[in-house]
Design a protein around this nucleic acid. Structure first.
Lengths: 165, 165
DNA sequence: CCCTCATTTCACTGATTTGTGAAACCACTG
DNA sequence: CAGTGGTTTCACAAATCAGTGAAATGAGGG
């Protein structure tokens, strides 16, 4: 018996929608998230705007906005296809999440806001100041650990890749 | 010269709004965030619904909804005040952020979604499967490091507290 | 160099979220 | 066991956002 690995397109569709919704809940524009996961789950190296519109059942306009957004974030690059007018959109780096899941920018904003308000509450030795400083320190602590964490992951990943070869 | 530590209420107000907006961008209900930071920056141990409504210039109804939300999250407790009909709302734990900044729940959802779709794309040895598995592994890795990270922070915090005494 | 078709822009629609005012509710006080 | 006043609920208004259709734009291909 030969097992043909067919894709369960239905399930893949569900995955895309599920994750897109999850990301949307966390502030990521919804359509952009749908496009992102559609690209992640695409067997081809990239998809045209048309293919994206079809798979996501969205208008060309919506796709246009989404890929522009993803482009600004650096997640997606557009690639002209020789001999065709349809450009291909592809993920620049399949590990795009490594840069975002850590919310570094968010931490930084919290830290600076907390830092700046310290004077206004009478310094870090007042009751409120202590609380605020503690919050700042927490975020600063987590943030400071992020680079090492990513390094560690990269190292593990490369080790795994080597082991596969 | 004696320096009287007056609070710059204006600046504090700005801080509350700024952080609330930041959190709102990340999916936290806006009014709830405003209440949260109003409580954090309050000199009193807690605030009444009335005081919150005044400081935030919001209706009693909005406050009601926000504190209910914060109560469900366990961030805020309501405390009846003997001799007064006004209940006091206070932060249960000033380090509420330690439980959320890490987004553990988010990671878990990504992990399970990725895990479940693997079969539908032909297993982790297909091109797409490999990508999905890699994403799952990344989030699982980060997630696995969270507890140790929080422990480390707690330890540092307690060491600091001891040093202060 | 024009023509065609992919892509973008723009104005609008529908959905969702957020907050308000007023009435209902409820618990404490006297 | 009322009366008072704080809190919640509810229906609605405002603002925001996402997505569409259609027109405008513009980049190849012939």
């Amino acid at each position: 018996m030969v097992t043909v690995t067919t894709r369960d397109e239905e399930a893949v569709r569900g995955f895309v929608e599920r994750l897109a919704l999850l990301f949307a809940d966390w502030g990521f524009p919804r359509m952009a998230a749908r496009v992102l996961f559609a690209l992640m789950t695409a067997e081809a190296p990239g998809l045209t705007a048309n293919e994206l519109a079809e798979r996501l059942d969205a208008s060309a306009a919506a796709i246009s906005g989404a890929v522009r957004y993803l482009g600004q974030l650096g997640f997606v690059v557009r690639e002209p296809v020789p001999g065709s007018r349809r450009d291909l959109y592809r993920l620049r780096d399949h590990t795009w999440y490594a840069g975002t899941a850590t919310a570094v920018q968010f931490y930084d904003l919290v830290i600076s806001a907390a830092d700046e308000v310290l004077g206004a509450v009478g310094g870090p030795d007042t009751t409120v100041g202590e609380r605020v400083a503690e919050m700042r320190d927490f975020f600063a602590f987590v943030r400071s650990r992020v680079p090492a964490l990513l390094d560690e992951w990269q190292a593990a990943r490369q080790a795994r890749a080597r082991a596969r070869d």
